[in-house]
């Protein structure tokens, strides 16, 4: 692998990893809320998140371009064509799948765990944490699924990142780009690396699930 290729691979992992971290900051509280509380409309909210799992990346891309472009509402931030824009886009993109998987992981935890933690002296927050810790396998699976979705998506990265060399070029955009340029060999190499990452993470997830 050439140095440039390694750089693109690392950047992809970095960007999608950051997107996952950000996404977790709101997905964890949302999922704890949805998973631990019973209220009217809860199922509707969950099914909305489920419906958004398949949200087309290009649709999200175009919305974000409209928002980040100089002509858009957030134009003055100068975010268009930066890695930050891709991170924001991917963080939003993986929110539905993360919320959906985290919520069901939390739901599947024995409901008495929360009470148990409380009777042992836990505060409300600590009790939630105990639930999350019981759901840790599901949480890791959700994280892996979200990361795979982020690192494998093309629409957002291409539209808000524009595949700038040495800056916003990630694996998927380079695959598309090299294909268009007739550099199929590079395209195929990159596709293999991407598949290797996604497959090995999925494999890891499966090992966790079985254990």
């Amino acid at each position: 692998m050439s140095e440039q290729l390694i750089e693109v691979v690392l950047r992809s992992i970095w960007i999608s990893g950051a997107a996952l971290l950000f996404s977790l900051t709101w997905c964890l509280p949302i999922s704890l809320f949805l998973g631990l509380r019973n209220f009217r409309g809860r199922n509707i909210i969950i099914s909305i998140f489920n419906a958004f799992i398949g949200f087309p990346t290009v649709a999200l891309g175009i919305i974000l371009v409209a928002l980040f472009s100089n002509a858009g509402a957030l134009g003055s931030l100068g975010l268009l064509y930066t890695p930050t824009a891709i991170i924001i886009g991917q963080a939003l993109l993986v929110t539905p799948i993360l919320v959906s998987l985290l919520t069901s992981a939390i739901e599947s935890v024995d409901p008495s765990i929360r009470d148990l933690a409380k009777t042992l002296g836990a505060s409300d927050g600590q009790a939630k944490l105990a639930v999350l810790s019981e759901a840790r396998k599901g949480t890791i699976l959700a994280g892996i699924a979200a990361f795979n979705r982020a690192i494998g998506e093309l629409g957002v990265a291409l539209m808000v990142g524009a595949s700038l060399r040495g800056y916003t070029r990630v694996m998927t955009t380079q695959i598309a780009l090299e294909y268009n340029r007739g550099e199929w060999e590079l395209s195929v190499q990159l596709a293999i690396v991407l598949l290797a990452i996604v497959f090995s993470l999925t494999l890891l997830a499966n090992m966790l699930r079985r254990d």
Partner: peptide
């Protein structure tokens, strides 16, 4: 009640255990 919770403990009929 966090203070009270730290001084009073309950064990359930259906044993609940952390994984």
């Amino acid at each position: 009640d966090v203070n009270y919770r730290k001084r009073v403990t309950m064990a359930f009929q259906q044993t609940a255990l952390f994984r």
